[in-house]
Amino acid sequence: MMKGRKRKSGSLTAQMLDPATLEQIALWLEGAGVASIEIETEDGRLVRIVTGEDAALRDAGVDPVAAAPVEPHSVRPAKSQIAGHFLPVHPARDAAEAAIGASVFPEQIVGFVGIGPLIMPIRAEEAGTLRACTVGPGDLVGYGDTVFLIEPAQ
């Protein structure tokens, strides 16, 4: 979208930091239900645009869904590697790869993220017990979002 509206003067970063452009991007994000977006420019610099209160909370390290009755230091997250829609169960299977309460081993697939026609795995980083799923089926998840909480093995 940005490419088509690219202006002649100024770097891409400068163009995006233009208040009118920022406002337009924020409107698009809100319209699409997206909380934040990161844009990498040619010179490698990152621009992060955050909208709404939800995103502000997350920025402050407070994940509203992760506020489960578990000690924050005793659990590890299993994160989404890519933005897409959360699939707790593979569409061709009847049951999840790992049930809540089950033990998981490092690199085990515990859920999926659907991106268009493709599916990416969500993996456990270390051995432990799958304690909670923090998003609902079909919910939009972002890159690095916590989807599962795993209690590490002793």
Binding site: P91, A92, G114, I119, M120
Partner: peptide, 12 residues
């Protein structure tokens, strides 16, 4: 590296 899948035709 970590592998990936595709929506099965029956679903898609």
């Amino acid at each position: 590296q970590g592998g990936f899948g595709v929506m099965p035709p029956e679903t898609a």
